[in-house]
């Protein structure tokens, strides 16, 4: 019964640094807590009512002391803030070559799609030593993707995409929790992250693939919903070609520019009038009622497969 952990497992590339910062904070807390406790205990004993200790020269104002215990905590705080902010920034920006996984949360489960076509529920299989970028959205209320062993947490919101990333460093199974209260079975909205060695993971990918790759499903949806009639490479009168779109900079009708990332593509499909590309008429209807979150991810994956801005230089900029 006494065999229980006091420290969480550290199984991601950032976990060690978060822990180091945590222990620094423990040190700072122990230092200041120690000073206060020592002061309270010492003064209480030495200056108890009937003690004979001298009370001569008691002061109630001491500017240097006040400044000392204002400025020292301030300086220490500034240092902790800087480290925390830098690490936070790193935890927000995924490495370029990260492997992407798509997550849809709903009451009360995690639905996961791998670009290769594998789908999982409440389980996420990832290879060790590879950065994984999660693109997440919710179908209903706010959830939060939380893997304690990775020190990773990100709210998952309806109506928009949020992203986070991690790189697992140790094979094993880890808790996946929903950390934002989401209704009745919130406490049951948990699963596991399975970290596997690279070759095992490849075997798993090949063995558990039930659907075609997301690009293929996306390609099919692209034709099924009729996107192809306006957004093909050949007919560009009504809508821009999507080749080389992903990651490029798009100029909009109102003169502003925007980077074509997952959020932009999602917004363009659901609310086409809101981000009209310069030089085109607002002809496109909304697909908000017709596509599921999973299908949206498949189309985005397909559009990504059409290439990035490297070849954008070849097409004429509108």
């Amino acid at each position: 019964m006494w065999d229980f952990p006091l420290l969480p497992e550290a199984a991601s590339s950032t976990a060690a640094e978060v822990d180091a910062l945590f222990w620094l904070l423990i040190g700072v807390a122990a230092f200041f807590g120690g000073i206060i406790t020592a002061g309270l205990v010492y003064f209480n004993i030495r200056y108890r009512k009937n003690s004979k200790a001298s009370r001569a020269g008691a002061v109630s104002e001491h500017l240097p002391l006040e400044l000392l215990w204002s400025i020292v905590p301030l300086v220490i705080s500034a240092g902790i803030f800087g480290w925390g902010a830098k690490l936070y920034f790193d935890m927000h920006v995924p490495p370029e070559h990260a492997r992407e996984v798509y997550v849809v949360a709903k009451q009360w489960m995690w639905k996961i799609q791998h670009p290769q076509g594998n789908r999982e529920i409440n389980e996420l299989h990832v290879p060790v030593g590879v950065p994984i970028k999660l693109v997440m959205t919710s179908q209903d209320v706010i959830h939060s993707f939380f893997v304690p062993a990775f020190r990773v947490k990100q709210d998952v919101l309806p109506g928009r995409y949020t992203t986070t990333w991690f790189e697992a460093t140790k094979p094993g199974e880890y808790h996946l929790f929903c950390a934002e209260y989401c209704g009745t079975s919130h406490a049951s909205m948990k699963g596991r992250v399975v970290v596997m060695k690279q070759e095992e993971f490849e075997r798993w990918l090949a063995g558990s693939r039930l659907a075609e790759p997301m690009t293929a499903s996306g390609d099919q949806l692209f034709r099924q919903f009729g996107c192809v009639t306006c957004h093909s490479q050949t007919s560009q009168e009504r809508g821009p070609s999507l080749h080389g779109l992903f990651g490029s900079t798009v100029r909009l009708a109102d003169g502003s520019t925007v980077t074509a990332d997952e959020r932009y593509i999602r917004e363009s499909i659901l609310n086409p009038g809101g981000a009209l590309v310069a030089g085109y008429k607002p002809l496109m209807p909304t697909y908000a009622q017709q596509m599921s979150q999973e299908q949206l991810f498949q189309i985005i994956e397909y559009i990504k497969s059409l290439g990035g801005p490297q070849i954008a230089g070849e097409r004429k900029n509108p």
Partner: peptide
């Protein structure tokens, strides 16, 4: 409270 004000540590600790 300082732990929770520290961004990177807050990510792990918030909502726990």
């Amino acid at each position: 409270g300082l732990f929770l004000a520290t961004l990177a540590v807050n990510v792990h600790l918030t909502d726990t």
